[in-house]
Design a protein around this nucleic acid. Structure first.
Length: 359
DNA sequence: TACTCGTGGAT
DNA sequence: TATCCAAGAGT
C-alpha cells in the first residue's frame, strides 16, 4: 500500500478497533444484525445526522419491519414516513430496491458487492456498509468520516470532493481492515470520525492514534481533508396559492422526478422572471385547469434554503371555481385534518400549520 | 465532471 | 448571521 507499511496499518487499526469496542454508542440499528434493517439505517444516514435519523428509523421499523412489508406498501405511505428527512428519492429508490430484492433474491438482501451495488440508491458506500456491517464481508465503506479520518492519519491531501479520490481512500480502508473484523472496524472508522476526529477542532488530546497521526505530527489536522468549496444556493421566487372552497383547500402533487419529487404542496409557480405574482398565478390556473383565479390577499412570506436553492415563497389566499378543478391522482381538495395524511416538504408544512387559524 | 437532491444543528 | 455540513447517489 502506497507509503503505509503493515506495522503502521496494524497498529492504527488495532487502536481504532479497541477504542470503538469501549466507546461505541448504543444506537438502535446496532441492536440488530438484520441486513434489511441495517440497510434502511444506512440509507437514512446518508447526509443526515444520527440524532435526526433515530426517531425515523424506529417508526420505519415498526411499520416496515421486513423486506416484504416495505415491498408491498403503498409508495405514498413510504413517502409520508420519510417526510421531513429530506432527499426523498432515497425513499423511492429504497422501496424500488427492496421490491427487486423481494423478487430477484427471494427477499434476502444480497451479500455480494456487484448484486448490492446494482440496486437503485445503493452506491459504493452503502453497498460496502451493508455487506461489512451485516455480513462481516471484508469490503471498505468510505463515507465523509472515513475521508476525514484517513486524510488526517495518513496526511493525504487529495481533494475528497472529487470522485477520483475515492479509489485511493477505499484502497487504504480495505488494507486496514483486520481479518474477520470488517463489521466493527468499518463502524469504528465512522464512529471515531463522528466523536473524536470531528471536522472542526478535532479532539486530538484524547485521540487514541495521536502518536501515529501524520496530520497531527505536522500540525495540519485542522486543514484536512482538502475539500472544494460549495457554491451558494441560487435564489428562486415562488408564488403559492391557498385556494379555499368551504372547509377544503387545494393541494397538488409534484412530478415524480426532480426537486421534492412526489411531494404534495399548495399550487405554486416560479415567478423569478419578475412578473407580478397575481398575474403569474392567474395564468398558472388558467393554463392548468382553464379556470379563473381571484387573488384575495397576501397570506405569508416564507424563506427556505435547500442545498442548492433558496426559495422566497409568497403565499396568497385565493378563490376559484372548485367545480372546474376536479380531483385526480395529483389534485386533491382536503380539510386541514386530512392534510396531515399527505407528505409535504417542510416549507409547505409551515404554511399548512398557519392555515388552522384561517378556518 | 459538475450539478442535483433536503433538512436541522453546530460553530 | 452566515457558513458549513452529516454514515451519498443519480445523472
Amino acid at each position: 500500500m502506497a507509503g503505509i507499511n503493515h506495522l503502521e496499518a496494524n497498529e492504527v487499526a488495532k487502536r481504532l478497533l479497541t477504542w470503538y469496542v469501549q466507546n461505541k454508542r448504543d444506537l438502535p440499528w446496532r441492536r440488530t444484525k438484520d441486513p434489511y434493517q441495517i440497510w434502511v439505517s444506512e440509507v437514512m444516514l446518508q447526509q443526515t445526522r444520527v440524532e435526526s435519523v433515530i426517531p425515523y428509523w424506529n417508526r420505519f421499523m415498526e411499520r416496515f419491519p421486513t423486506v416484504e412489508s416495505l415491498a408491498v406498501a403503498p409508495e405514498e405511505e413510504v413517502l409520508k414516513m420519510w417526510e421531513g428527512l429530506g432527499y426523498y428519492s432515497r425513499a423511492r429508490n429504497l422501496q424500488a430496491a427492496v421490491r427487486e430484492v423481494n423478487e430477484k433474491y427471494g427477499g434476502r438482501v444480497p451479500d455480494s458487492l456487484p448484486d448490492m451495488c446494482s440496486l437503485p440508491g445503493v452506491g459504493p458506500y452503502t453497498s460496502g456498509a451493508v455487506l461489512s456491517i451485516a455480513y462481516n464481508v471484508s469490503v471498505p465503506a468510505v463515507d465523509g468520516n472515513v475521508f476525514r479520518v484517513l486524510s488526517r492519519i495518513f496526511l493525504i491531501e487529495d481533494d475528497v470532493s472529487k470522485p477520483a479520490a475515492r479509489k485511493k481512500f477505499e484502497g487504504i480502508a480495505e488494507f486496514l481492515i483486520p481479518p474477520g473484523e470488517a463489521s466493527d472496524f468499518n463502524q469504528a472508522l465512522m464512529e471515531f470520525g463522528a466523536r473524536i476526529c470531528i471536522p472542526k477542532h478535532p479532539r486530538c488530546e484524547t485521540c487514541p492514534v495521536q502518536s501515529l497521526c501524520r496530520g497531527y505530527r505536522e500540525g495540519v489536522q485542522d486543514r484536512l481533508p482538502v475539500k472544494g468549496k460549495k457554491k451558494p444556493p441560487r435564489p428562486l421566487d415562488i408564488a403559492t396559492a391557498i385556494v379555499w372552497q368551504r372547509d377544503r383547500v387545494l393541494i397538488t402533487r409534484r412530478p415524480p422526478e426532480g426537486l421534492l419529487a412526489g411531494m404534495w404542496e399548495f399550487p405554486s409557480c416560479d415567478v423569478s422572471d419578475g412578473n407580478r405574482h397575481e398575474a403569474e398565478l392567474t395564468r398558472f390556473f388558467q393554463g392548468k385547469w382553464d379556470v379563473g383565479l381571484q387573488v384575495k390577499s397576501h397570506f405569508a412570506n416564507l424563506q427556505h434554503t435547500f442545498s442548492h436553492l433558496h426559495w422566497n415563497v409568497q403565499a396568497y389566499t385565493c378563490e376559484a371555481e372548485a367545480e372546474k378543478i376536479p380531483e385526480t391522482d395529483s389534485v386533491k381538495w382536503v380539510t386541514t385534518r386530512e392534510l396531515t395524511q399527505f407528505a409535504m416538504p417542510v416549507v409547505h408544512q409551515k404554511l399548512a400549520k398557519s392555515l388552522d387559524g384561517l378556518l
